[in-house]
Design a protein around this nucleic acid. Structure first.
Lengths: 188, 188
DNA sequence: CAATCTAATCAACACACCGTTGATTTATTT
DNA sequence: AAATAAATCAACGGTGTGTTGATTAGATTG
């Protein structure tokens, strides 16, 4: 049981480093954030940073991966329901993002890299594939473009939603995505 | 007339710096590219670089802006046609990107920042707005999400198209975008 | 052509951040 | 209380930065 519960000191160190980086990335892009800065903000020795991460990008990656783990974990319930209800899943995703809006805003902003965005797209694409299953009249090639279009468009809406202060409810956003992906412009 | 025709030396310098950066960005993200590297690849003195650009990001920005100027210029014809034919415009955009696929691949890849992508999205969104004009039954808020979704999804398809070696023709890509944006999944 | 700009080169500078090391202090576990 | 593991600290050589002033090479004009 020695590795299951990480040393409290490690947890603390990782937490403050994480918070410090997120705070910095509200002001400047990851590319211009230095290890020195992160450590100053976290009040952590620079050598300690290197004991855990190779560089700021590695720290960012670990934040992204943690979020993805967390979100797929919390979506596990939705998945296990035999009727995989795409609108419901989307609403859950939007809810999760709203609950973690500070971090998600940063991870999906221009200050970040494309890692988190790509992961969310991949996750959503899977859901669209499940929902739409294969149709005869569509080639595999077209199908891939179809999933891609829907998933990327969806993440685009998430970004717009976040930057505008999440005025619409998660449910109405999920509904909007369903309308757009299913029927596009003709839905209006 | 002294500033209209730039000194040939300046043109040369900017060209080789540009080419060097693009070459480097096929291997590594802009964030990890150094001024020193760019200058080595271009066989240009480092001081000369700083005479023109503040840092590699500034150089990248100028490349992005040049491309956008060029593309909107060449699309000028399509715009001036009174009947703004969205499928035709899209096909022109796809054609342009194919002609400049090396640079566009880089500017739209994960190695780049989001600047070029954002500019293309903005340009396309405008076109969708022109095409769709205002409908009564849709709120201004929903309309913005609609344009955003279509434009971002479109750029997503461009990226996928590029990474897969542009097997489909520009025309068929334009058609695909029209189908997806107008009728979504139900178009298939 | 010669004189005059103007751009590019070169060497050198102080500076900041990097990534690592070895020794020390502090916290956690047994 | 002893053993283990993490964080701290100071210091290191190394690399890239951004700027400067002097020099060389190219472009432009009379």
């Amino acid at each position: 049981m020695s590795d299951k519960k990480q040393d409290g000191r490690i947890k603390y160190t990782k937490m403050v480093l994480r918070d410090s980086l997120i705070a910095l990335m509200r002001e400047k892009p990851i590319a211009k954030v230095t290890v020195t800065e992160i450590c100053q903000g976290a009040d952590i020795n620079r050598a300690t940073f290197y004991a855990h991460y190779a560089d700021p990008f590695a720290l960012l990656s670990s934040i992204e991966n943690e979020m993805m783990l967390d979100i797929t974990e919390k979506l596990g319930d939705a998945f296990s329901l035999e009727d995989t209800d795409l609108p419901a899943i989307l609403a859950r995703v939007f809810e999760y993002i709203k609950e973690n809006s500070v971090v998600c805003s940063v991870l999906l902003s221009d200050m970040s890299d494309t890692g988190f965005q790509a992961q969310v797209v991949a996750m959503l694409a899977k859901q669209f594939i499940v929902e739409w299953t294969t149709i005869k009249s569509i080639s595999r090639e077209d199908a891939e473009y179809l999933y891609t279009y829907a998933a990327i468009g969806c993440v685009g809406l998430i970004r717009k939603w976040l930057t505008e202060g999440m005025k619409k409810t998660p449910e109405s956003m999920a509904e909007l995505v369903m309308k757009l992906s299913n029927r596009g412009y003709s839905a209006f």
